[in-house]
Design a binder for these strands. Structure first.
Lengths: 193, 193
DNA sequence: CCTAGTCCTGAATGGCCGTACAGTAGATAG
DNA sequence: CTATCTACTGTACGGCCATTCAGGACTAGG
């Protein structure tokens, strides 16, 4: 949906709480009333926009997970893609989303679903690796929670305190952590030149 | 300051972006104009409130750091206190703060200072431990960034997706991570019964 | 006393914005 | 051709809220 993309763009620029229907409408060259016509309320627009963003991310994630490549390779690809880059476009939205979700059940559900499906995909990769004898884990779900939590925390540092953390350092630390969690050598995870 | 405490309470209840001067004023039984009289603008009130919260946390932190106890003990005490509990009162404010700070330089500075001073205190403990031969680290500053990032990420899960993560599991994982980072045995970190 | 300063108030002001509503234009179908 | 439906618009309502302003009250210093 065009409107949802524009809404996400506006959220990225102004922040979720400052999103104005009038802005979205004028960017799309339609009347504000039309937005309400389709989405009923501003709240609802926000929820659908985040859902849309989540769905898009999950699609991309799924594509990587399906690729024909060894688990280690795919896992690192996922993490590389998920990790914030300079603009960190996607991340700003999630941080905004966390803040909003603390007081909004609908958003809470959207984020919880996103989180669950994310975790499930990664758990999948890891269990493939375990089955193939390359990874050794205690509880793959816990491992995923820990790895993604670390990533979230590091991402906050990049997004909030701009460039307090370089992207390649983040990447490096991620490799280190993953190697430890999965009982493999860091070299096996590093992407080939 | 009374007003700042009340402001923090309101932020906690309604969220930063929804804070209304009128609410703070009426809770304090004064006129809204008085708030503006003292703080000039709403923005400014928010910045000062967060600064106040940061200062309060840093004071508490410093008290723990100064205690006469082995470094390992003090480090765990700090992390136990910083970790979110059920209500997670403090944490909600920081998540809100992150979101707001992404678009507000003044807040960015407040949070960056808080972060730096936090890190510095913990680095202090770790270096004591290293000097005493109990800890082994590569770069103590990096270690702190990693540990606190993990904590932030786990905290998000507790605060946003309420109770998707039990407090004692979080604690457990923290011990695990710290033990690894500092090259000590987990048992040496666990708090004595 | 008087002056000046500080703290505080009530009552506007001004602007913003989500939302409701009544209605238009165009397409579709019977 | 008519009736209906859908997508859409302009306009206006209604409320909310930060901020301003013109003072009032109380204090302290001279």
């Amino acid at each position: 949906m065009e409107v949802l993309d524009e809404t996400l763009k506006q959220i990225h620029e102004r922040g979720m709480s400052a999103l104005r229907i009038a802005d979205v409408a004028s960017s799309m060259q339609v009347s504000p009333a039309l937005i309400i016509y389709h989405f009923e309320t501003r709240e609802n627009l926000l929820v659908e926009a985040l859902t849309h963003a989540a769905e898009r991310d999950l699609l991309k994630l799924h594509r990587i997970v399906r690729e024909p490549a060894p688990p280690a390779r795919r896992l690192m690809k996922v993490l590389e893609w998920y990790a914030p880059s300079g603009a960190a476009r996607g991340w700003q939205i999630w941080v905004d989303g966390w803040a909003a979700a603390m007081r909004d059940k609908a958003l809470q559900k959207v984020l919880a679903d996103l989180q669950d499906r994310w975790a499930a995909e990664i758990v999948g990769i890891i269990e493939e690796g375990v089955a193939g004898g390359v990874f050794t884990v205690d509880d793959s779900h816990d491992v995923v929670t820990r790895i993604t939590s670390l990533l979230d925390g590091l991402a906050v540092r990049m997004v909030v305190h701009k460039d307090a953390l370089k992207r390649d350092v983040l990447q490096e630390w991620l490799v280190r952590q993953v190697a430890w969690e999965l009982g493999v050598d860091q070299e096996e995870l590093r992407s080939p030149a």
